[in-house]
Amino acid sequence: MATLILNGELEKLAGCSTITISSVTYRGFIEEVVNQVAGLSADRLMEMALAIDGEIIHEPLLVTIPENSELHFVFKISGG
């Protein structure tokens, strides 16, 4: 089990601030989130980076979601 923490606009859209996740793959994780929360779309979530225990991953498609990890969606940052 991992915990997804929602913040700001995502929290508003979802209507909750945490979601418990059992998937270990990214695609499974996204499916799980979208199934649990009507207000979030897969396209929108997949545009964002994913932070797993503080490590920000811009292209998380192939990640394995570790047991007991804490997940956050993060806006992608570019920089100057």
């Binding site: 913040n7 490590e55 993060v74």
Partner: peptide
């Protein structure tokens, strides 16, 4: 952090 993850 306000933007998401905890800092390392």
């Amino acid at each position: 952090t306000l933007y998401g993850p905890k800092l390392k």
